[in-house]
């Protein structure tokens, strides 16, 4: 039937469009164990569903304009019992079992001693990430998750305020962060690379700007990164950056933010110890860089309305640049 062909063409066309899409946050381009299983499940169901849809269209077409003998075959309760009861029961039973098996595959291995364990806390509207090393020491970061490829990582998901949902589509499905509960999501990256994730449960105001990056690294790179990230902020000899550092401390930024190695030890906003080394600012709202820092400090309520940081217009242009350069230097 022409409608069916039209649909197929459109469907194929859209897949082409998709290929042109950026894949950074796409469930179609899995780089994690759970996401890979689900991707296969998706295509199996889509193809089967597509065939069923075409079948229904063909049967409807026959019912409307088919030959009398064909129409007669469709026009009894026998047809309904076959196509409407027996066929769905068979298909759905198979699908149900398949779904259960895939669900069961998500069972995490019994906790072992050397399993990696990170905590992620959703806050309106950013992510507080706490890393634990093998010795149980912990340090904080924000809006970016580093994981080693090939090792299961336990993510303990909690929230500081309302319900959020942690979703890194290329690695795994989402899991909600609910007050009073700790939900554990185990992810295993299968490929190196940077991907993006986003809060999936509407959490008020700036819900649209609550994203993050996941950096999957080789275990060696990851070890190296952990060693560097757990340390204090790098000292920068650049004169402007040093002025920026003074401004940071004098203006009271440390009331909300921590920069380890300085007097700034606030716990309200994101930890900025290595903020210059992250892939983005403000929960993946801005690209990282001095210009973006300056823009954010003075203009953040326009960039990300309702976020909890007030805009700071107390700085002169050159002060703002110094401050931005300092923050950018915190690699």
């Amino acid at each position: 039937m022409s409608k069916g062909r039209f649909r197929t063409t459109v469907g194929a066309g859209l897949l082409v469009l998709l290929a042109a899409c950026n894949q950074e946050q796409s469930a179609f381009a899995p780089t994690g164990a759970e996401a890979e299983r689900i991707n296969v499940l998706f295509w199996v169901m889509t193809i089967a569903g597509g065939l069923i849809l075409v079948g229904v269209i063909v049967l409807s077409a026959v019912a409307i304009c088919g030959r009398e003998t064909l129409r007669a075959r469709l026009s009894g309760e026998r047809f309904i019992r076959g196509a409407g009861i027996a066929f769905p029961v068979v298909v759905l039973s198979m699908l149900l079992v398949y779904g259960f098996v895939i669900l069961g595959a998500g069972a995490s291995a019994p906790p072992s001693d050397n399993e990696m364990r990170f905590a992620i806390r959703g806050e309106q509207w950013w992510w507080r990430v706490t890393y634990f090393d093998a010795d149980g020491n912990s340090f904080e970061s924000a809006n970016e998750l580093h994981v080693p490829v090939g090792q299961p990582v336990r993510l303990e998901l909690t929230t500081a305020d309302v319900i959020h949902s942690f979703w890194a589509p290329r690695l795994a499905g989402k899991l909600d962060m609910i007050p009073g509960r700790i939900n554990v999501l185990t992810i295993t990256a299968t490929e190196e690379g940077i991907s993006r994730g986003q809060c999936a449960e509407y959490c008020g105001g700036a819900h649209a700007f609550m994203s993050f990056h996941v950096v999957a690294q080789t275990p060696e790179d990851f070890e190296e990164w952990m060693a560097k990230e757990s340390g204090p902020a790098v000292k920068n000899e650049n004169e402007r950056a040093a002025r920026g550092r003074e401004l940071f401390l004098d203006a009271g930024c440390g009331g909300c933010h921590t920069i380890r190695g300085t007097a700034a030890a606030g716990a309200i906003g994101p930890d900025l110890t290595h903020v210059g080394g992250r892939h983005s600012l403000a929960a993946a709202t801005l690209p990282n860089g001095a210009a973006a820092f300056a823009d954010w400090i003075s203009n953040n309520q326009h960039i990300k309305p309702e976020n909890k940081m007030p805009p700071y217009n107390i700085f002169t242009q050159s002060q703002l640049e110094d401050l931005a350069l300092y923050l950018e230097s915190l690699k």
């Binding site: 996401a35 689900i38 889509t46 699908l95 398949y98 998500g106 499905g173 899991l175 999936a200």
Partner: peptide, 23 residues
């Protein structure tokens, strides 16, 4: 409706819903 019903069956399969939910 048939198309919507089929995607309904898809999201009824728990692991797929982990991805599709709230998108």
């Amino acid at each position: 409706f048939v198309l919507g019903g089929l995607t309904g069956v898809m999201v009824a399969v728990v692991p797929f819903d982990f991805q599709a939910h709230d998108t």
